[in-house]
């Protein structure tokens, strides 16, 4: 057993110490130890992106890394985006544009979208679609997801997580 200590969702009070088996994946740590179940496990093979979280400000697939690889890092999950009860502008845009149907891919889709606008605030539609290639949605056909990203972009809202 090893100790994992990370800052999750920016709050020092949530800095977590837990004894985990070294083979524990980051997503298992987030969901099962921290009980933050917004981060989803879809394919479990790094294809679908439902498990996307930010580690030190970079989107990563939490099903394809160990919790111990995140030792000492700042991790942001979907639960960490809303501030003071108000949705993150990207979450609000997904809500307004109905950028989801079943909602399973949405947490990862939002995390990747926040990253994409942080990297490329003026992303074209083509660039948005390319930047979301690591996130699969089986319901929407992606159109409303792209619209949501564009709406967030047009709002000029800061996209930093």
């Amino acid at each position: 057993m090893s100790t994992v200590s990370t800052a999750v969702n920016g709050k020092s009070v949530e800095a977590v110490q837990a004894d985990v088996d070294p083979r524990t994946l980051l997503v298992e740590f987030i969901r099962e130890h921290l009980r933050l179940t917004g981060t989803h496990v879809g394919c479990d093979t790094a294809q679908c992106g439902a498990c996307t979280v930010h580690m030190n400000g970079r989107a990563v697939k939490s099903c394809s890394m160990l919790a111990l690889q995140a030792q000492g890092a700042d991790v942001t999950t979907i639960e960490g985006l809303a501030k003071d009860g108000a949705l993150h502008p990207m979450q609000a845009a997904f809500h307004e544009c109905h950028g989801l149907q079943c909602g399973f891919c949405t947490p990862g889709m939002v995390m990747s979208s926040v990253q994409l606008l942080a990297d490329n605030p003026k992303a074209t539609e083509q660039e948005i679609r390319e930047a979301l290639e690591g996130n699969l949605c089986r319901c929407t056909g992606y159109h409303n997801i792209v619209k949501a990203v564009q709406q967030c972009q047009a709002g000029g809202v800061p996209a930093n997580a």
Partner: peptide, 9 residues
């Protein structure tokens, strides 16, 4: 290579 999240790791 891969996708953006894979490229970060």
């Amino acid at each position: 290579i891969g996708d953006p999240a894979v490229r970060h790791m």
